[in-house]
Amino acid sequence: MSNVFTLLLVRETRLMFRRPAELVNPLVFFSIVIALFPLAVGPESQLLQTISPGLLWVAALLAVLLSLDGLFRSDFEDGSLEQWVVSPHPLVVMVLAKVLAHWLYCGLALVMLSPLLALMLGLPTQHIPTLLLSLLLGTPVLSLLGAVGAALTVGLKRGGILLALLILPLYIPVLILGSGVIQAALQGLPTTGYLLWMASLTMLTLTLAPFAIAAGLRISVAE
């Protein structure tokens, strides 16, 4: 069982690194969206600093969302998903490996890029650790919840916009908590409590979402 988990993780890693452009795309998207805002609202540094927690979170959320459309698509089209469903190994384990790979190569990469963009928006350096922690706890939730939507829409020809419609409302709590933590830090309020809240949200999603993803994949394959 754990064997299949590691093998799938290795397989996903291989696939990812044989198409390195796809690794970079969400990161470039993230940077461009962040760059749009100073251009749209003006370069006034006080304003940018105030809205930077929200901007960083919304941009990261959209970058994850865009990358999710392809999460199961190629596996669906080339018949891999059918093979997983009929195999004797639990689908949930494979789903976890798949989502972990997505988080490592999309979510974690975004987290690592975020301090740079935060500095460009004028977020004070002492709040960078809070930003990193909030994204580190929040991006797995984005990957997991997004994978539920990706699993349900994978069989549809134009799943992209529908995926956004299904998933964005579900992202609201993590968006509120994630950007709220940084705002609280900016206002000099304690953040530990909120971070613990985020951690429990992450654990809850990690426990429940894989089952919903697996069920969604079974439905899409049966279509």
Partner: peptide, 19 residues
């Protein structure tokens, strides 16, 4: 969006539960 009605019902059910 899902044309197969059994799949559509199941997919909606899962989304409603997650929601």
């Amino acid at each position: 969006a899902i044309t197969n009605r059994d799949s559509a019902a199941k997919a909606c059910a899962i989304l409603a539960i997650v929601g």
